[in-house]
Design a protein around this nucleic acid. Structure first.
Lengths: 145, 145
DNA sequence: GCTATTTCAACCTAATTTTATAGAAATTAT
DNA sequence: ATAATTTCTATAAAATTAGGTTGAAATAGC
């Protein structure tokens, strides 16, 4: 399927949750609280956050009183970066980013199409920041009330 | 990953191959020849073509001299139809097409984003026909020569 | 010219391999 | 002692391979 894996989906919700609790980056958020609020297994969150840490999107603080903090302000973290860290790419197919993946690429008409669609997606996700998502959440909760 | 499955990719190449040999829909193309040209296992092609047949995108002719023919002219078959037959949808996430998939949907800000991206993709694939792909192939082979 | 046989290709089912997802247990740092 | 982190182990899904069956056309023998 053309489908976002749970890694990408859960990871984005994880980052959004950190953004919602990001008060200038003072207090760390523990995965347990993210787990409770987002209803995602803490074990799985631990695996998901590893690539986010490697890609310097979050900082970890070990030990008591520790947890995770966004490495930058929510406005400076784009969805494309999160997906890139978690999915390896924003592309629909491997061969778009990896030239050597398939030798047919130069003559492949379908490749062109996947590439164009991938660029479209990439562009879309590059223009959405965590701050934008936070705004959407606030808008939604206003509608409810 | 946000990735098109091999079903979608191989299936599109299968349909494109049928389109390239579609001379007004007179002669059927056998999977063996598609397998040789596209370098995809014939066993796998047999599985991939089933949903394409169910969705009335191809017609099968059994026995000697048989094979497969596009059910319509290449200009009348859109990429979105092929992907829909093979992938079940053009969407990035289940919850976009299935309202009951996730109870968080109404309050989920990330859901909005996946939905918008999915619609973008859907729209893109709806505007590409097999004939368009055939034209791209011809353009590419001209460049080579 | 009709039946029997061969051939070709679609069709169906099962098994295997690989990859993704999820969780448990053990470990490390403060 | 508590919380983060790593490593290991199941489970599930996707991709691929493989074998055998059925139906339809073409050909050979009578």
């Amino acid at each position: 399927m053309i489908r976002l894996s749970t890694k990408g989906r859960y990871g984005t919700r994880l980052m959004l949750n950190l953004a919602l609790h990001h008060n200038g980056g003072q207090k760390a958020t523990i995965l347990k609280s993210v787990s409770d609020q987002e209803e995602i297994s803490i074990r799985y969150l631990e695996q998901i956050i590893i690539p986010l840490k490697i890609n310097k999107l979050v900082k970890s603080i070990r030990g008591a009183g520790g947890g995770y903090i966004l490495a930058r302000n929510p406005a400076d973290i784009r969805l494309s970066e999160i997906l890139h860290a978690l999915e390896g790419s924003c592309c629909l197919v491997e061969c778009v980013e990896d030239d050597e993946y398939c030798e047919r690429t130069p003559s492949c008409a379908t490749h062109e199409v996947w590439e164009e669609a991938s660029l479209m997606l990439k562009n879309y996700f590059e223009n959405i920041s965590l701050e934008d998502l936070v705004k959407r959440v606030k808008k939604k909760s206003r509608k409810k009330a």
